[in-house]
């Protein structure tokens, strides 16, 4: 028997649908990291559901061969929450973009953090709306003037995904770089093993609308502090705030009770009908 060919390969988790992503898009790295993580976890593809909204990044489910739902813009976390509540046995990964998750879906992000359902949320942050041709997103720098929609910049403070996730109650918070699929794969594994809501912000360049992000590979570096990951929210907040947003690593891990539905089977419909009787 060939020792190498009966292994579970990341490739086994890919579908035959070819990505529409621009060559060089960071999202390829995220796709590879996800499939590597699934292979490492040796999860049966039918036990995993990958849920997304709309955007370049949100196209990811169809490129895998797990169960997927490519929903509508901004609502992936809600869809994932409903699926998890109805099917606690499934492994749920929700994925999408910074516009999808922090702008139109921002409210769901806050409440998914609070709710602490057992799922993993991967945001491919390219500080831009890729799919709609390069408008500013919530994470875009205020003085970025390349979009015709905001010719003098947004003048708005960029959204701070990690700090906000922390304040909202996420129990696993990490930042990664799409150019390092192996490192990201490990983080996805940790996130999926974490009981509760695990959030990974992936810096994922958009070479088409943010060509300057090609430089990210020279800028990102692991957090240079031994204190991380921490379970102390104050410490995590300190490092989130001090950082320029380009340090990677697991920042915060907290053991908190996971959202759970009651699994009583106490009554039948006849019992309920009794209450209406005169």
């Amino acid at each position: 028997m060939n020792p190498l060919s009966d292994k579970i390969e990341p490739k086994d988790y890919k579908s035959d649908v070819k990505p529409v992503w621009c060559p060089g898009c960071g999202d390829f790295g995220v796709l590879n990291a996800i499939t590597k993580a699934l292979a490492s976890l040796r999860l049966a593809p039918e036990q995993v559901a990958l849920i997304s909204g709309i955007g370049c990044s949100s196209r990811v489910p169809a490129y895998t061969n797990v169960y997927g739902f490519h929903g509508i813009h901004g609502r992936a976390l809600a869809l994932g929450a409903g699926l998890k509540a109805a099917r606690p046995d499934l492994h749920i990964v929700v994925a999408g973009g910074d516009g999808d998750g922090f702008s139109i879906g921002g409210n769901h992000f806050l409440h998914a953090c609070r709710r602490n359902m057992d799922m993993t949320y991967i945001v491919m942050d390219n500080e831009v709306y890729g799919m709609t041709k390069g408008q500013a997103s919530p994470t875009t720098a205020p003085d970025w003037t390349e979009s015709e929609l905001t010719p003098s910049g947004t003048h708005a403070r960029p959204f701070q995904p990690a700090a906000i996730a922390l304040a909202a109650g996420a129990t696993f918070i990490a930042r990664a770089f799409s150019g390092k699929p192996n490192t990201l794969a490990q983080m996805v594994v940790l996130a999926m093993q974490h009981p509760g809501f695990a959030f990974i912000q992936v810096l994922s360049p958009c070479p088409t609308f943010r060509p300057e992000q090609k430089e990210w590979k020279n800028i990102v570096r692991p957090f240079a502090v031994d204190a991380l990951p921490t379970s102390d929210p104050a410490l995590a907040a300190l490092h989130c705030q001090r950082d320029d947003g380009m340090s990677t690593g697991v920042i915060y891990v907290e053991a908190r009770p996971v959202w759970k539905r009651s699994d009583m089977q106490e009554i039948a419909i006849d019992d309920i009908e009794q209450e209406f009787r005169i």
Partner: peptide
């Protein structure tokens, strides 16, 4: 961290 022959997406 990455394999030697996976290249760099930024060069594509």
């Amino acid at each position: 961290d990455e394999g030697p022959e996976t290249g760099d997406y930024a060069d594509i």
